[in-house]
């Protein structure tokens, strides 16, 4: 049994804070848990904090896109926050631009982005 990443609820927003480097199985568990939690808590938004993440491979990169897509289907918006410069460079070099995933510099700005109505956030 590999580690599970805790999913915290703040109001109608779910907060996923990744504190250690991810293994493939952990990532799959997270996708599953998150989908369940969004439905169970009827969440409007998901914030994934990866500020502690130093290493990202293509699998994790795709996971972020997948999670965003899953939550969009379940009518919740996803914001990835706190990506490190080195991680961003790696993802770009891997050719993953995470189109369709919104991002923010830190947790605070991410939450602010979710609180803004959807129409203005896309501008």
């Amino acid at each position: 049994m590999s580690d599970r990443i805790p999913i915290l609820r703040i109001g109608d927003i779910l907060l996923v804070s990744v504190q250690f480097d991810l293994e493939d199985q952990t990532v799959l568990n997270l996708q599953e848990d998150l989908a369940e939690q969004i439905v169970a808590k009827s969440a409007q938004g998901v914030v994934i904090d990866i500020s502690a993440l130093e290493i990202v491979d293509s699998f994790v990169g795709r996971m972020l896109a997948t999670v965003a897509a899953i939550s969009r289907v379940l009518d919740a918006r996803t914001v990835v926050v706190g990506m490190r410069p080195a991680v961003a460079i790696t993802l770009v070099e891997l050719g993953l631009s995470l189109g369709g995933v919104s991002t923010a510099l830190d947790l605070e700005k991410g939450l602010a982005k979710l609180r803004r109505p959807a129409s203005s956030a896309s501008q």
């Binding site: 961003a88 919104s102 991002t103």
Partner: peptide
């Protein structure tokens, strides 16, 4: 383009 995409990934 790479620089801009990387900045966007970070939320800028």
């Amino acid at each position: 383009l790479k620089t801009i995409v990387a900045a966007r990934l970070m939320g800028a």
